[in-house]
Design a protein around this nucleic acid. Structure first.
Lengths: 163, 163
DNA sequence: GAGGTTTGGTTGCGTTTGCAACAATCCGCG
DNA sequence: CGCGGATTGTTGCAAACGCAACCAAACCTC
């Protein structure tokens, strides 16, 4: 009796070539593009993107947020946020506010200085982003976003003023 | 005389909404997908992806490589590669070979153990990649890869056996 | 309302990163 | 040849990360 081919030669399931291509491109391109923007910020003497994102999320929410409500959308583990906030608080960019309803935690709110810094960063971030992405046009960007969101199952958020 | 509008109201150039969407999606999705694969490797008690990539590039090249020839395609700074190789060498996965032509540097080659490990990793990596990417089909993956490559201007490489 | 579990958040500690300085070699040019 | 500059790769040190342990308050159950 013949052995079934499928049962024999599948020691590991191998992603199709298109999937592999997409995977590789995703890793490389996102890294490359991200780096370019980080570089622009650093070159301007500004903090890294994660600081921006914290400030932006707080500003966008329009009200103080619990750390956990930031950690989820930022996709970073709580201990990382905790220390990020330590640093930002030390620079006077955000403040931890005693939380009445739940005495374990606290609320995070941007300070005036934090607000200002976010704007300064956006002034560098926005053009850098545009520059890093200039090789595709709007229609392509839309299609790209659509495919990525399908891949990741994540909904839309924007990232700065007048978006 | 009237001032030109364009000269007046462009304190910062703002990326179009499609561009912003693509940017955000790129960051979030790549991180999410990457994490899932790293997690699978860690869960299997295997080293992180960068180790795989070093081993794979060496194996793919089919001959010993100079560190700089690895650092470029891996898109990591030389000092990072230097330490990565330190660790991998300490585990007996690669070896540094004295280089005749250029006594500053050396060649990197995988050991038998390194070769074996790469295969073990691929057995976990491949299904994890497939799983992380399963929400899009081949046609979409191809389109995605195409758009990403246009965005980043990077050519195709695959990432494992029988690709 | 006492005791166990879950949740929210921080921290100690070892590892990894990033930068800038460094060493060693190679290359080009007078 | 001999010297100045470029290339290749490493390293000391400070900052950041990742894990697991931890604390404290909240919640849940009896």
């Amino acid at each position: 009796m013949r052995l079934q081919q499928s049962a024999l030669k599948t020691p590991t399931r191998i992603p199709s070539d298109p999937l592999q291509r997409a995977w590789v491109a995703l890793g490389r391109v996102s890294q490359s593009v991200q780096c370019r923007v980080e570089e622009a910020l650093k070159h301007a003497g500004l903090p890294e993107l994660s600081w921006y994102t914290v400030l932006w999320e707080l500003e966008r929410a329009g009200k103080p947020l619990r750390p956990k409500d930031l950690a989820i959308p930022l996709f970073i583990p709580p201990y990382q946020l905790s220390r990020l906030v330590d640093r930002m608080e030390a620079e006077g960019l955000v403040k931890r506010i005693q939380c009445k309803e739940d005495k374990r935690g606290h609320m995070l709110a941007p300070t005036a200085k934090g607000f200002t810094l976010r704007k300064e960063m956006w002034a560098v971030y926005a053009p850098a982003m545009e520059d890093a992405m200039k090789r595709i046009d709007d229609a392509e960007a839309l299609k790209l976003a659509e495919l990525l969101n399908k891949l990741g199952g994540i909904e839309h958020v924007n990232c700065g003023d007048k978006g």
